[in-house]
Design a protein around this nucleic acid. Structure first.
Lengths: 209, 209
DNA sequence: GTCTATACAGCGATAGAC
DNA sequence: GTCTATCGCTGTATAGAC
Protein backbone atom coordinates (compact mmCIF):
# COMPACT_ATOMS: atom_id res chain seq x y z
CA UNK A 1 0.00 0.00 0.00
CA UNK A 2 2.84 2.39 0.80
CA UNK A 3 4.87 1.39 -2.18
CA UNK A 4 4.92 2.97 -5.58
CA UNK A 5 2.02 1.01 -7.09
CA UNK A 6 -1.38 2.57 -7.12
CA UNK A 7 -4.08 0.45 -5.49
CA UNK A 8 -7.50 1.33 -6.86
CA UNK A 9 -10.06 0.68 -4.18
CA UNK A 10 -13.07 2.12 -5.95
CA UNK A 11 -14.20 0.73 -9.28
CA UNK A 12 -12.66 -2.53 -8.16
CA UNK A 13 -14.98 -4.85 -10.15
CA UNK A 14 -14.14 -3.03 -13.37
CA UNK A 15 -10.88 -4.77 -14.26
CA UNK A 16 -10.39 -5.73 -17.89
CA UNK A 17 -11.77 -9.04 -18.99
CA UNK A 18 -9.16 -9.81 -21.58
CA UNK A 19 -8.81 -12.67 -24.02
CA UNK A 20 -8.77 -15.31 -21.28
CA UNK A 21 -11.91 -13.98 -19.68
CA UNK A 22 -13.78 -14.03 -22.95
CA UNK A 23 -12.67 -17.61 -23.62
CA UNK A 24 -13.68 -18.81 -20.14
CA UNK A 25 -17.12 -17.28 -20.42
CA UNK A 26 -17.62 -18.51 -23.98
CA UNK A 27 -16.57 -22.06 -23.10
CA UNK A 28 -19.11 -22.14 -20.27
CA UNK A 29 -21.89 -20.84 -22.49
CA UNK A 30 -21.09 -23.26 -25.33
CA UNK A 31 -21.10 -26.15 -22.89
CA UNK A 32 -24.43 -25.10 -21.43
CA UNK A 33 -26.32 -23.99 -24.53
CA UNK A 34 -24.60 -25.41 -27.61
CA UNK A 35 -23.09 -23.60 -30.55
CA UNK A 36 -26.13 -22.20 -32.33
CA UNK A 37 -27.69 -20.58 -29.28
CA UNK A 38 -24.61 -18.64 -28.22
CA UNK A 39 -24.11 -15.34 -30.04
CA UNK A 40 -21.27 -12.88 -29.63
CA UNK A 41 -23.76 -10.59 -27.92
CA UNK A 42 -24.48 -13.27 -25.32
CA UNK A 43 -20.80 -13.91 -24.72
CA UNK A 44 -20.14 -10.19 -24.35
CA UNK A 45 -23.08 -9.81 -21.95
CA UNK A 46 -21.90 -12.65 -19.75
CA UNK A 47 -18.36 -11.25 -19.77
CA UNK A 48 -19.58 -7.77 -18.86
CA UNK A 49 -18.40 -6.05 -22.05
CA UNK A 50 -19.97 -5.01 -25.35
CA UNK A 51 -20.10 -7.21 -28.42
CA UNK A 52 -17.85 -5.04 -30.56
CA UNK A 53 -15.09 -5.19 -27.96
CA UNK A 54 -14.61 -8.89 -28.61
CA UNK A 55 -12.98 -8.06 -31.93
CA UNK A 56 -10.05 -6.50 -30.11
CA UNK A 57 -9.10 -10.01 -28.97
CA UNK A 58 -10.37 -12.19 -31.83
CA UNK A 59 -10.75 -11.76 -35.55
CA UNK A 60 -13.98 -13.69 -35.79
CA UNK A 61 -16.40 -15.91 -33.90
CA UNK A 62 -14.80 -18.94 -35.49
CA UNK A 63 -11.46 -17.96 -34.03
CA UNK A 64 -12.96 -18.10 -30.53
CA UNK A 65 -14.51 -21.45 -31.17
CA UNK A 66 -11.32 -22.97 -32.57
CA UNK A 67 -9.36 -21.79 -29.53
CA UNK A 68 -11.90 -23.38 -27.17
CA UNK A 69 -11.99 -26.65 -29.09
CA UNK A 70 -8.19 -26.94 -29.06
CA UNK A 71 -7.84 -26.20 -25.35
CA UNK A 72 -10.62 -28.68 -24.60
CA UNK A 73 -8.66 -31.55 -26.15
CA UNK A 74 -5.30 -30.42 -24.81
CA UNK A 75 -6.62 -30.41 -21.25
CA UNK A 76 -7.96 -33.96 -21.31
CA UNK A 77 -4.99 -35.22 -23.33
CA UNK A 78 -2.48 -33.85 -20.83
CA UNK A 79 -4.38 -35.19 -17.83
CA UNK A 80 -4.80 -38.62 -19.35
CA UNK A 81 -1.13 -38.90 -20.27
CA UNK A 82 -0.05 -37.84 -16.78
CA UNK A 83 -2.45 -40.21 -15.05
CA UNK A 84 -1.21 -43.19 -17.04
CA UNK A 85 2.49 -42.37 -16.87
CA UNK A 86 2.23 -41.84 -13.11
CA UNK A 87 1.48 -45.53 -12.66
CA UNK A 88 4.43 -47.76 -11.70
CA UNK A 89 5.94 -49.88 -14.44
CA UNK A 90 4.35 -53.29 -14.65
CA UNK A 91 0.89 -52.09 -13.57
CA UNK A 92 -1.77 -54.50 -14.76
CA UNK A 93 -3.94 -53.69 -17.77
CA UNK A 94 -7.14 -53.32 -15.77
CA UNK A 95 -5.68 -50.64 -13.50
CA UNK A 96 -4.25 -48.73 -16.46
CA UNK A 97 -7.55 -48.74 -18.33
CA UNK A 98 -9.47 -47.69 -15.24
CA UNK A 99 -7.11 -44.74 -14.80
CA UNK A 100 -7.48 -43.62 -18.42
CA UNK A 101 -11.26 -43.98 -18.41
CA UNK A 102 -11.57 -42.19 -15.09
CA UNK A 103 -9.41 -39.29 -16.18
CA UNK A 104 -11.29 -38.76 -19.44
CA UNK A 105 -14.65 -38.87 -17.70
CA UNK A 106 -13.64 -36.51 -14.89
CA UNK A 107 -12.18 -33.99 -17.36
CA UNK A 108 -15.47 -34.11 -19.24
CA UNK A 109 -17.92 -34.01 -16.34
CA UNK A 110 -16.07 -32.37 -13.46
CA UNK A 111 -13.03 -30.41 -14.48
CA UNK A 112 -13.14 -28.51 -17.74
CA UNK A 113 -15.73 -26.34 -19.46
CA UNK A 114 -13.40 -26.43 -22.47
CA UNK A 115 -13.44 -30.22 -22.77
CA UNK A 116 -17.19 -30.46 -22.29
CA UNK A 117 -17.76 -27.60 -24.73
CA UNK A 118 -15.64 -29.44 -27.29
CA UNK A 119 -17.68 -32.62 -26.98
CA UNK A 120 -20.95 -30.75 -27.00
CA UNK A 121 -20.42 -28.44 -29.99
CA UNK A 122 -17.92 -30.21 -32.26
CA UNK A 123 -20.73 -31.69 -34.31
CA UNK A 124 -22.45 -28.31 -34.64
CA UNK A 125 -19.68 -26.01 -35.83
CA UNK A 126 -18.81 -25.14 -39.46
CA UNK A 127 -16.61 -27.59 -41.34
CA UNK A 128 -13.68 -25.16 -41.38
CA UNK A 129 -13.70 -25.00 -37.59
CA UNK A 130 -13.81 -28.79 -37.30
CA UNK A 131 -10.87 -29.05 -39.68
CA UNK A 132 -8.85 -26.61 -37.61
CA UNK A 133 -9.38 -28.75 -34.53
CA UNK A 134 -8.50 -32.02 -36.25
CA UNK A 135 -4.72 -32.13 -35.65
CA UNK A 136 -5.23 -31.69 -31.90
CA UNK A 137 -7.85 -34.42 -31.86
CA UNK A 138 -5.66 -36.77 -33.87
CA UNK A 139 -2.91 -36.43 -31.28
CA UNK A 140 -5.25 -37.40 -28.45
CA UNK A 141 -6.65 -40.29 -30.46
CA UNK A 142 -3.11 -41.50 -31.18
CA UNK A 143 -2.39 -41.49 -27.44
CA UNK A 144 -5.37 -43.79 -26.85
CA UNK A 145 -4.49 -46.03 -29.77
CA UNK A 146 -0.94 -46.40 -28.49
CA UNK A 147 -2.20 -47.28 -25.02
CA UNK A 148 -4.69 -49.84 -26.28
CA UNK A 149 -2.19 -51.36 -28.71
CA UNK A 150 0.34 -51.82 -25.94
CA UNK A 151 -2.19 -53.65 -23.81
CA UNK A 152 -3.33 -55.80 -26.70
CA UNK A 153 0.25 -56.75 -27.61
CA UNK A 154 0.99 -57.90 -24.11
CA UNK A 155 -2.05 -60.15 -24.34
CA UNK A 156 -4.28 -58.28 -21.92
CA UNK A 157 -6.99 -57.44 -24.46
CA UNK A 158 -8.87 -59.81 -26.71
CA UNK A 159 -6.74 -60.16 -29.85
CA UNK A 160 -9.52 -59.89 -32.43
CA UNK A 161 -10.74 -56.37 -31.63
CA UNK A 162 -9.68 -53.60 -34.00
CA UNK A 163 -7.93 -50.89 -31.97
CA UNK A 164 -9.31 -47.94 -33.88
CA UNK A 165 -12.85 -49.25 -33.55
CA UNK A 166 -12.37 -50.00 -29.89
CA UNK A 167 -11.14 -46.47 -29.25
CA UNK A 168 -14.09 -44.97 -31.12
CA UNK A 169 -16.51 -47.09 -29.13
CA UNK A 170 -14.89 -46.26 -25.81
CA UNK A 171 -14.50 -42.50 -26.28
CA UNK A 172 -17.92 -42.28 -27.91
CA UNK A 173 -19.56 -44.04 -24.99
CA UNK A 174 -17.79 -41.84 -22.44
CA UNK A 175 -18.58 -38.62 -24.29
CA UNK A 176 -22.25 -39.56 -24.55
CA UNK A 177 -22.56 -39.24 -20.77
CA UNK A 178 -22.49 -35.48 -21.21
CA UNK A 179 -26.09 -35.64 -22.46
CA UNK A 180 -27.51 -37.16 -19.29
CA UNK A 181 -24.98 -37.04 -16.46
CA UNK A 182 -26.49 -35.61 -13.30
CA UNK A 183 -24.18 -35.13 -10.30
CA UNK A 184 -27.20 -35.51 -8.01
CA UNK A 185 -27.54 -39.11 -9.10
CA UNK A 186 -23.93 -40.09 -8.48
CA UNK A 187 -20.41 -38.76 -8.95
CA UNK A 188 -18.36 -38.84 -12.13
CA UNK A 189 -15.97 -40.99 -10.14
CA UNK A 190 -18.62 -43.63 -9.46
CA UNK A 191 -19.82 -43.47 -13.06
CA UNK A 192 -16.33 -44.11 -14.37
CA UNK A 193 -16.15 -47.23 -12.24
CA UNK A 194 -19.35 -48.55 -13.80
CA UNK A 195 -18.04 -47.84 -17.30
CA UNK A 196 -14.80 -49.63 -16.58
CA UNK A 197 -16.71 -52.61 -15.14
CA UNK A 198 -18.89 -52.93 -18.21
CA UNK A 199 -16.17 -52.43 -20.80
CA UNK A 200 -13.69 -54.68 -19.09
CA UNK A 201 -15.96 -57.59 -18.17
CA UNK A 202 -19.30 -57.10 -19.92
CA UNK A 203 -22.79 -57.25 -18.50
CA UNK A 204 -23.58 -60.95 -18.86
CA UNK A 205 -23.69 -63.01 -15.68
CA UNK A 206 -21.23 -65.86 -16.21
CA UNK A 207 -22.47 -69.30 -15.40
CA UNK A 208 -19.02 -70.88 -14.98
CA UNK A 209 -17.60 -71.44 -11.48
CA UNK B 1 -55.60 -44.45 -70.27
CA UNK B 2 -58.95 -44.95 -71.90
CA UNK B 3 -60.86 -44.48 -68.67
CA UNK B 4 -62.32 -41.29 -67.28
CA UNK B 5 -59.21 -40.05 -65.50
CA UNK B 6 -57.07 -37.51 -67.23
CA UNK B 7 -53.46 -38.55 -67.59
CA UNK B 8 -51.17 -35.54 -67.81
CA UNK B 9 -48.18 -36.50 -69.87
CA UNK B 10 -46.57 -33.07 -70.05
CA UNK B 11 -45.46 -31.26 -66.90
CA UNK B 12 -44.95 -34.69 -65.35
CA UNK B 13 -42.13 -33.74 -62.88
CA UNK B 14 -44.32 -30.98 -61.42
CA UNK B 15 -46.34 -33.06 -58.99
CA UNK B 16 -46.98 -31.51 -55.58
CA UNK B 17 -44.45 -32.17 -52.88
CA UNK B 18 -46.87 -32.18 -50.00
CA UNK B 19 -46.36 -32.50 -46.27
CA UNK B 20 -44.59 -35.86 -46.55
CA UNK B 21 -42.18 -34.64 -49.17
CA UNK B 22 -41.18 -31.66 -47.05
CA UNK B 23 -40.64 -33.89 -44.02
CA UNK B 24 -38.53 -36.40 -45.96
CA UNK B 25 -36.31 -33.68 -47.37
CA UNK B 26 -36.01 -31.88 -44.03
CA UNK B 27 -35.11 -35.07 -42.18
CA UNK B 28 -32.32 -35.77 -44.65
CA UNK B 29 -30.94 -32.24 -44.37
CA UNK B 30 -31.10 -32.25 -40.56
CA UNK B 31 -29.29 -35.58 -40.47
CA UNK B 32 -26.58 -34.32 -42.82
CA UNK B 33 -26.07 -30.76 -41.59
CA UNK B 34 -27.50 -30.41 -38.10
CA UNK B 35 -30.24 -28.12 -36.87
CA UNK B 36 -28.60 -24.71 -36.99
CA UNK B 37 -27.40 -24.97 -40.58
CA UNK B 38 -30.76 -25.92 -42.07
CA UNK B 39 -33.05 -22.98 -42.82
CA UNK B 40 -36.57 -23.13 -44.21
CA UNK B 41 -35.17 -21.71 -47.42
CA UNK B 42 -32.75 -24.65 -47.70
CA UNK B 43 -35.53 -27.14 -47.06
CA UNK B 44 -37.73 -25.46 -49.64
CA UNK B 45 -34.90 -25.39 -52.19
CA UNK B 46 -34.17 -29.09 -51.73
CA UNK B 47 -37.87 -29.89 -52.00
CA UNK B 48 -38.24 -27.83 -55.17
CA UNK B 49 -40.68 -25.27 -53.74
CA UNK B 50 -40.46 -21.76 -52.26
CA UNK B 51 -39.95 -21.05 -48.57
CA UNK B 52 -43.33 -19.41 -48.03
CA UNK B 53 -45.12 -22.50 -49.35
CA UNK B 54 -43.98 -24.53 -46.39
CA UNK B 55 -46.43 -22.63 -44.21
CA UNK B 56 -49.30 -24.24 -46.03
CA UNK B 57 -48.29 -27.54 -44.42
CA UNK B 58 -46.76 -26.42 -41.13
CA UNK B 59 -47.37 -23.57 -38.71
CA UNK B 60 -43.72 -23.07 -37.83
CA UNK B 61 -40.24 -24.46 -38.23
CA UNK B 62 -40.53 -26.03 -34.77
CA UNK B 63 -43.59 -27.94 -35.91
CA UNK B 64 -41.51 -29.58 -38.66
CA UNK B 65 -38.75 -30.47 -36.26
CA UNK B 66 -41.09 -31.97 -33.67
CA UNK B 67 -42.73 -34.13 -36.33
CA UNK B 68 -39.34 -35.42 -37.48
CA UNK B 69 -38.13 -36.11 -33.95
CA UNK B 70 -41.28 -38.07 -33.09
CA UNK B 71 -41.20 -40.20 -36.23
CA UNK B 72 -37.52 -40.88 -35.67
CA UNK B 73 -38.19 -42.51 -32.30
CA UNK B 74 -41.36 -44.27 -33.40
CA UNK B 75 -39.53 -45.97 -36.27
CA UNK B 76 -36.74 -47.43 -34.14
CA UNK B 77 -39.13 -48.26 -31.29
CA UNK B 78 -41.45 -50.21 -33.55
CA UNK B 79 -38.62 -52.10 -35.24
CA UNK B 80 -36.98 -52.98 -31.96
CA UNK B 81 -40.22 -54.24 -30.42
CA UNK B 82 -40.95 -56.37 -33.49
CA UNK B 83 -37.46 -57.83 -33.65
CA UNK B 84 -37.56 -58.90 -30.01
CA UNK B 85 -41.11 -60.24 -30.00
CA UNK B 86 -40.40 -62.23 -33.16
CA UNK B 87 -37.97 -64.40 -31.21
CA UNK B 88 -39.33 -67.73 -29.93
CA UNK B 89 -40.21 -67.95 -26.26
CA UNK B 90 -37.27 -69.10 -24.17
CA UNK B 91 -34.65 -67.49 -26.37
CA UNK B 92 -31.43 -66.93 -24.43
CA UNK B 93 -30.52 -63.48 -23.14
CA UNK B 94 -27.53 -63.08 -25.42
CA UNK B 95 -29.59 -63.61 -28.57
CA UNK B 96 -32.27 -61.20 -27.38
CA UNK B 97 -29.77 -58.47 -26.62
CA UNK B 98 -28.00 -58.96 -29.93
CA UNK B 99 -31.31 -58.55 -31.73
CA UNK B 100 -32.19 -55.36 -29.87
CA UNK B 101 -28.74 -53.82 -30.34
CA UNK B 102 -28.64 -54.74 -34.02
CA UNK B 103 -32.07 -53.29 -34.69
CA UNK B 104 -31.30 -50.00 -33.00
CA UNK B 105 -28.01 -49.62 -34.84
CA UNK B 106 -29.43 -50.51 -38.24
CA UNK B 107 -32.32 -48.05 -37.80
CA UNK B 108 -29.79 -45.37 -36.94
CA UNK B 109 -27.15 -46.07 -39.59
CA UNK B 110 -28.97 -47.80 -42.45
CA UNK B 111 -32.69 -47.37 -42.40
CA UNK B 112 -34.08 -44.06 -41.28
CA UNK B 113 -33.15 -40.42 -41.90
CA UNK B 114 -35.71 -39.60 -39.21
CA UNK B 115 -34.00 -41.67 -36.53
CA UNK B 116 -30.54 -40.39 -37.39
CA UNK B 117 -31.84 -36.82 -37.58
CA UNK B 118 -33.32 -37.26 -34.11
CA UNK B 119 -30.04 -38.42 -32.61
CA UNK B 120 -28.08 -35.76 -34.43
CA UNK B 121 -30.19 -32.67 -33.63
CA UNK B 122 -31.97 -33.42 -30.35
CA UNK B 123 -29.26 -31.65 -28.38
CA UNK B 124 -29.40 -28.61 -30.65
CA UNK B 125 -33.11 -27.77 -30.78
CA UNK B 126 -34.96 -25.29 -28.53
CA UNK B 127 -36.10 -26.57 -25.15
CA UNK B 128 -39.77 -26.45 -26.18
CA UNK B 129 -39.06 -28.81 -29.06
CA UNK B 130 -37.16 -31.21 -26.83
CA UNK B 131 -40.06 -31.20 -24.38
CA UNK B 132 -42.53 -32.03 -27.13
CA UNK B 133 -40.48 -35.07 -28.09
CA UNK B 134 -40.05 -36.32 -24.53
CA UNK B 135 -43.16 -38.53 -24.21
CA UNK B 136 -42.21 -40.45 -27.34
CA UNK B 137 -38.66 -40.90 -26.09
CA UNK B 138 -39.86 -42.03 -22.67
CA UNK B 139 -41.89 -44.77 -24.28
CA UNK B 140 -38.88 -46.13 -26.14
CA UNK B 141 -36.71 -45.90 -23.05
CA UNK B 142 -39.36 -47.80 -21.08
CA UNK B 143 -39.28 -50.56 -23.69
CA UNK B 144 -35.53 -50.96 -23.18
CA UNK B 145 -35.81 -50.81 -19.40
CA UNK B 146 -38.48 -53.50 -19.45
CA UNK B 147 -36.32 -55.71 -21.66
CA UNK B 148 -33.23 -55.29 -19.53
CA UNK B 149 -35.15 -55.78 -16.29
CA UNK B 150 -36.63 -59.03 -17.57
CA UNK B 151 -33.18 -60.35 -18.41
CA UNK B 152 -31.75 -59.25 -15.09
CA UNK B 153 -34.60 -60.87 -13.15
CA UNK B 154 -34.05 -64.18 -14.84
CA UNK B 155 -30.42 -64.00 -13.75
CA UNK B 156 -28.88 -63.43 -17.15
CA UNK B 157 -27.40 -60.01 -16.33
CA UNK B 158 -25.11 -59.10 -13.47
CA UNK B 159 -27.38 -58.26 -10.55
CA UNK B 160 -25.59 -55.12 -9.36
CA UNK B 161 -25.99 -52.96 -12.47
CA UNK B 162 -28.62 -50.23 -12.33
CA UNK B 163 -30.99 -50.72 -15.25
CA UNK B 164 -31.52 -47.04 -16.01
CA UNK B 165 -27.79 -46.41 -16.07
CA UNK B 166 -27.17 -49.49 -18.19
CA UNK B 167 -29.75 -48.33 -20.73
CA UNK B 168 -28.22 -44.84 -20.87
CA UNK B 169 -24.77 -46.32 -21.40
CA UNK B 170 -25.95 -48.72 -24.07
CA UNK B 171 -28.09 -46.33 -26.13
CA UNK B 172 -25.54 -43.55 -25.70
CA UNK B 173 -22.75 -45.75 -27.01
CA UNK B 174 -24.82 -46.90 -29.98
CA UNK B 175 -25.98 -43.38 -30.87
CA UNK B 176 -22.40 -42.10 -30.74
CA UNK B 177 -21.58 -44.23 -33.80
CA UNK B 178 -23.45 -41.69 -35.90
CA UNK B 179 -20.48 -39.33 -35.53
CA UNK B 180 -17.96 -41.64 -37.14
CA UNK B 181 -19.68 -44.57 -38.83
CA UNK B 182 -18.43 -45.05 -42.40
CA UNK B 183 -20.09 -47.78 -44.47
CA UNK B 184 -16.88 -48.10 -46.49
CA UNK B 185 -15.12 -49.42 -43.39
CA UNK B 186 -17.68 -52.07 -42.52
CA UNK B 187 -21.43 -52.62 -42.41
CA UNK B 188 -23.76 -51.54 -39.63
CA UNK B 189 -24.47 -55.22 -39.24
CA UNK B 190 -20.83 -56.05 -38.51
CA UNK B 191 -20.53 -53.05 -36.20
CA UNK B 192 -23.51 -54.20 -34.18
CA UNK B 193 -21.84 -57.57 -33.67
CA UNK B 194 -18.75 -55.87 -32.26
CA UNK B 195 -20.87 -53.76 -29.91
CA UNK B 196 -22.72 -56.81 -28.67
CA UNK B 197 -19.44 -58.67 -28.15
CA UNK B 198 -17.97 -55.85 -26.07
CA UNK B 199 -21.05 -55.13 -24.00
CA UNK B 200 -21.86 -58.74 -23.32
CA UNK B 201 -18.37 -60.05 -22.53
CA UNK B 202 -16.03 -57.08 -22.18
CA UNK B 203 -12.66 -56.48 -23.78
CA UNK B 204 -10.32 -58.14 -21.29
CA UNK B 205 -8.69 -61.40 -22.29
CA UNK B 206 -9.62 -63.90 -19.58
CA UNK B 207 -6.80 -65.92 -18.15
CA UNK B 208 -8.99 -68.75 -16.76
CA UNK B 209 -9.47 -71.97 -18.73
C1' DG C 1 -9.06 -2.38 -23.93
C1' DT C 2 -13.56 -0.97 -24.28
C1' DC C 3 -17.31 2.01 -26.07
C1' DT C 4 -21.00 3.68 -29.56
C1' DA C 5 -22.99 3.39 -33.86
C1' DT C 6 -23.97 1.15 -37.82
C1' DA C 7 -23.68 -1.75 -42.19
C1' DC C 8 -25.34 -5.82 -44.17
C1' DA C 9 -26.90 -10.58 -44.61
C1' DG C 10 -29.98 -14.20 -43.46
C1' DC C 11 -33.55 -15.88 -40.64
C1' DG C 12 -38.69 -17.13 -39.56
C1' DA C 13 -42.97 -15.62 -40.61
C1' DT C 14 -47.20 -13.29 -42.97
C1' DA C 15 -50.39 -11.54 -46.75
C1' DG C 16 -52.49 -11.88 -50.90
C1' DA C 17 -52.36 -13.37 -55.99
C1' DC C 18 -52.98 -17.35 -58.80
C1' DG D 1 -50.76 -26.08 -53.12
C1' DT D 2 -47.55 -22.93 -54.56
C1' DC D 3 -45.87 -18.22 -55.78
C1' DT D 4 -44.18 -13.33 -54.97
C1' DA D 5 -43.15 -9.79 -51.97
C1' DT D 6 -42.05 -8.05 -47.80
C1' DC D 7 -41.68 -7.19 -42.66
C1' DG D 8 -39.09 -7.32 -38.32
C1' DC D 9 -35.54 -9.31 -35.91
C1' DT D 10 -30.99 -11.01 -34.80
C1' DG D 11 -26.57 -12.32 -36.22
C1' DT D 12 -21.51 -11.18 -37.43
C1' DA D 13 -18.54 -7.76 -38.40
C1' DT D 14 -16.46 -2.89 -39.03
C1' DA D 15 -15.13 2.12 -38.03
C1' DG D 16 -13.80 5.53 -35.18
C1' DA D 17 -14.09 7.90 -30.46
C1' DC D 18 -12.23 7.62 -25.91
Amino acid sequence: MADGTVSKVKDAPRNPVGREGVLDVAARLFREQGYGSVSLRKIADAAGIKAGSIYYHFGSKDEIVVAILDVGIQVVHEKMRQAVSALPEGTDAETILRAAIGTHLRALLDVSDYTSANVRIFGQVPQSVRDANLPTRRAYEAEWDALLSRLQERGALKPDVDIRRLRLMLIGALNATLDWFDPDRGSAEALSRTYADVFLNGILERQDS
